[in-house]
Write a protein that binds this DNA or RNA. Structure first.
Lengths: 227, 227
DNA sequence: CAGGATATTGAACGATGGTTCGAAACCCTC
DNA sequence: GAGGGTTTCGAACCATCGTTCAATATCCTG
């Protein structure tokens, strides 16, 4: 006879719990960044969030849950950005530039030190799939923008997949060294990076165009995020 | 009365042991790559290298020893490359391009999946310092090449420190996704990346110059590496 | 073939990690 | 202030991790 799985432990819900989850996520991100992912324990995360290890499990069923949540949030924000960039009417180089600046800001300013989609490998197979799909969607936006630029003659002909990985590598790497208390703000770093990276794609003779970067997705567009 | 530290346990020496250490390093690198650093245990590394956990300690005094060795080897190769690039007579863009290609190859072809200088934070303070010094030296080479290019009017004026981080981010990121059995070889990826990144630095109107990339440092220059 | 140095094993130890759980504390509402 | 839901604690559990070590196998040398 098959035994029913134990009743799913009651997971906290409601706006208060969501708020708390946000605090935990922030604390975890901070620690993940300085001590590495495997190097930070639940007790440390709890302490950083001003609570007890046992209490953490009232909000997250497991460390994997916490990690997956961490990445879902970042990926959702990144994808929201990407959708806006793809839908925008400006030239491909301007849109790509704008997206790159936003990317750096989301990773270092909105979710400081967030691992974003950086450590998917650390999750068990079952959790990976949905996150990988979202990451793929995000990369697809870069692919699209680059192809659009090539088609328009704004970019020189490049392998869009490879170029995507180059751009993402550079901007993702910022979480390793960016220091919010340092001499530069996230958006300044983002602009310098985007300048360099998008210029690397331009066809000879084309001048880089840019867009004004606006507010981050925290108080952003009215359209809802995907479910 | 101060007790003498226990006699330093005999650590294997000789060419045979060095060979074995090389195998272990390769196995460890492979696992670190797929499972992450904190996620791989000594037992797994040992198994991957075809031996027992206890046996590992005949070659490395601790996991930190192993990790530090891993990074020293990669950094030594990278710095050897960097010294050649800095000493070379060609134009700055060509030298930087050559160095970037070499970097990708060292990380993905010579030491597949090596974490290189990527996870220094995981080491205890004492170990970090010498590695950080070597990394700093390596970054300094990029800084030099970029400044030289700017001075020569080959590159547009950029923040050399920031540009260095952008370039290194892109090429370091390759260890996350590069697959030796994939459609591209490490040197092809390296060239595409170097093209994009160095072009991003060029001053308007300047055409990219490149150097032929030669053999990797395995059978490389006669000058000795530093001790 | 003997015998010592070199390699390797497998079991064990202590510490730490994620996790569970019953009980206490807190916070509302009636 | 009694009572029920929500939240928090703290101790304990068990697996795993890095590590040690005495014993054994393997290899080379005389």
């Amino acid at each position: 006879m098959v035994r029913n799985p134990p009743p799913p432990r009651p997971e906290a819900s409601g706006p208060a719990a969501d708020e708390r989850r946000g605090q935990i996520l922030a604390a975890a991100s901070r620690l993940f960044r300085s001590r590495g992912l495997g190097g930070t324990g639940m007790r440390e995360i709890a302490a950083e969030a001003g609570m007890t290890a046992g209490n953490l499990y009232y909000y997250f069923g497991s460390k994997d849950d916490l990690l997956a949540f961490c990445q879902e949030v970042s990926l959702a924000d990144l994808n929201a950005l990407a959708r806006r960039a793809v839908a925008h009417a400006a030239r491909a180089d301007a849109r790509l530039h704008w997206l790159l600046v936003g990317h750096v800001r989301v990773l270092n300013e909105l979710h400081p030190g967030s691992l974003a989609h950086l450590e998917i490998e650390a999750l068990p197979e079952a959790r990976r799939q949905p996150l990988l799909a979202r990451r793929k969607a995000y990369e697809h936006a870069f692919h699209q923008l680059i192809d659009a630029g090539v088609a328009a003659g704004v970019f020189r002909p490049v392998d869009a997949s490879l170029a995507t990985l180059a751009l993402l590598g550079a901007v993702n790497w910022t979480v390793r060294w960016f220091d919010a208390s340092g001499r530069m703000h996230a958006d300044e770093v983002g602009r310098e990076f985007a300048d360099l990276l998008v210029r690397g794609l331009l066809a000879p003779g084309v001048e880089l165009e840019t867009l004004a970067d606006d507010a981050l997705s925290a108080d952003a567009p009215p359209e809802a995020l995907e479910p």
